[in-house]
C-alpha cells in the first residue's frame, strides 16, 4: 500500500482537526473582535450560525489556498523560457475531471446537510404560539408591542434573557428588516405579512443592530437597540410601561402638555391617558425612559429634544415630522413635558 504524500497529510489532517476543534467550540476562526459582530454571539441562534460560519470558513480557506498555491506554482514552474519546445497538447483527463467535480460536489452536499440542520434549529416553526414581542417597522422607527402585557412603546426593545422569545415582525409602510448580529439571523418586515424570529439571548446586556432592507432616505439611521434583561429587570420594564403617562406636576410641563394637544402632535403620536392617540409616529407615553432618540441617533436628553424640535429636518432629513416653527416658550414647555414622561 502506498504511503500518502506529505502534502496530503498537511491539508487533509489539518482540515479534519480544525473541524473537530470547531465542533468542540475550542476554535473560532474569526476573532471575536467587537460588539455588533456576528462572530461574537450572545444568543443561541447566533451561536449556531457562528459555528456553521467557522466550518464554512475553514473549507473555503482550504479551497482558496489550493487555487492560489496551484496558480502561483504553475506560473512559476511552467513559465515560458527562451527556446521552449511546444508543450504536450493535452486536451483532457477524465480522472482529473471527475475529481474536479466530485470533490466540490461532496463539499456542497456536506454543507447542505449542515444548512438544513442549522435552519431547523435557528428558525423552527412557531405553530400557533402567540408572539412575545411584535415589532413593526415604520419609516424610520420601530413600533414595539408586548401583546401579552398590553404594552406599546417605540425604538428601544427589551427582551428577557435565557428563554426563547418569539418575535413577530411587521411593517406599516415599506419593507424593513430586523438585524442584530450578536443575537442571530435577520428577518424582513414586509407590509401585509407577518414574519417571525426566535431570539434566545444568553447574556444580559445591550445589543445594537440595524434595519437591513433599504427603506428610504433615513435607512442608515434606523438603528436597533436591544436590551436583554434579567427576569427582574424585564418585569420592571413591563410594569413601568403598563401605566398611562405620568401627569405633569410643574407648570411648565403642564403648559407643554396643553401645547402638545393643541398643536396636533397627538394626531401622530400617542401618549396613553391623554387625548393624544396617533399611530403614525413613535409612542411617547414613556419617552423619557428611553436612552436614545431617533433610533439611536442622539442621546435622549433635554438638549437634544430641543435640537430636534427646533428643526427636525436638519437633524434627520426626510423624517416625516413637520417643522412646527415653535417659539422659544412653547419649545421649552414641550421639552419640559416630554422629558418628564418616564
Amino acid at each position: 500500500m502506498l504511503a500518502k504524500p506529505l502534502w496530503y497529510h498537511f491539508f487533509a489532517d489539518t482540515l479534519v482537526f480544525s473541524f473537530r476543534l470547531i465542533a468542540q467550540r475550542q476554535l473560532s476562526v474569526l476573532p471575536n473582535v467587537l460588539s455588533t459582530s456576528m462572530m461574537n454571539p450572545a444568543g443561541e441562534q447566533a451561536r449556531r450560525i457562528a459555528q456553521l460560519t467557522n466550518y464554512f470558513f475553514i473549507a473555503a480557506s482550504f479551497v482558496l489556498l489550493v487555487v492560489t498555491v496551484l496558480t502561483v506554482l504553475f506560473l512559476y514552474k511552467f513559465r515560458a523560457k527562451a527556446g521552449d519546445a511546444e508543450p504536450k497538447q493535452i486536451k483532457r483527463n477524465v480522472k482529473v475531471e471527475l475529481v474536479m467535480v466530485g470533490v466540490p460536489l461532496a463539499m456542497v452536499v456536506f454543507f447542505f446537510f449542515l444548512t438544513v440542520k442549522t435552519m431547523r434549529a435557528v428558525l423552527p416553526q412557531h405553530h400557533d404560539r402567540a408572539p412575545d414581542v411584535i415589532v413593526t417597522g415604520h419609516q424610520w422607527w420601530w413600533e414595539v408591542q408586548y401583546p401579552l402585557a398590553n404594552v406599546t412603546t417605540a425604538n428601544e426593545v427589551h427582551l428577557p434573557v435565557g428563554k426563547p422569545v418569539l418575535v413577530e415582525l411587521k411593517s406599516a409602510d415599506v419593507i424593513h428588516d430586523w438585524w442584530v448580529p450578536e443575537l442571530g439571523n435577520k428577518m424582513d418586515m414586509i407590509p401585509d405579512r407577518e414574519n417571525f424570529l426566535w431570539i434566545t439571548v444568553h447574556e444580559a446586556g445591550y445589543y445594537q443592530g440595524a434595519c437591513s432592507e433599504f427603506c428610504g432616505t433615513q435607512h442608515a439611521w434606523m438603528r436597533i437597540q436591544v436590551y436583554a434583561d434579567s427576569d427582574t429587570d424585564f418585569n420592571n420594564f413591563i410594569t413601568s410601561h403598563q401605566p398611562v403617562a405620568q401627569t405633569p406636576t410643574s407648570p411648565l410641563a403642564q403648559t407643554g402638555e396643553r401645547i402638545f394637544n393643541t398643536m396636533t402632535c397627538g394626531d401622530c403620536h400617542r401618549i396613553n391617558g391623554t387625548a393624544a392617540n396617533g399611530d403614525d409616529a413613535p409612542d411617547l407615553t414613556h419617552f423619557a425612559s428611553r436612552r436614545t432618540m431617533l433610533t439611536g441617533m442622539l442621546p435622549n436628553d433635554a438638549r437634544h429634544v430641543h435640537q430636534f424640535l427646533a428643526n427636525p429636518q436638519a437633524v434627520k432629513s426626510g423624517v416625516h415630522m413637520p417643522n412646527f416653527a415653535l417659539d422659544d416658550t412653547s419649545q421649552n414647555a414641550l421639552v419640559a413635558y416630554l422629558t418628564q414622561l418616564k
Binding site: M38, A46, R48, I49, L52, T53, F56, A60, F111, L114, T115, T118, M119, V122, L123, D177, W179, P181, G184, N185, K186, M187, S212, E213
Partner: peptide
C-alpha cells in the same frame, strides 16, 4: 456562503 441559508441570514444585506 450565501447559499448556506443560516449564514445568509446573518450576512445578506
Amino acid at each position: 456562503m450565501f447559499a448556506i441559508v443560516p449564514i445568509d441570514w446573518q450576512v445578506t444585506d
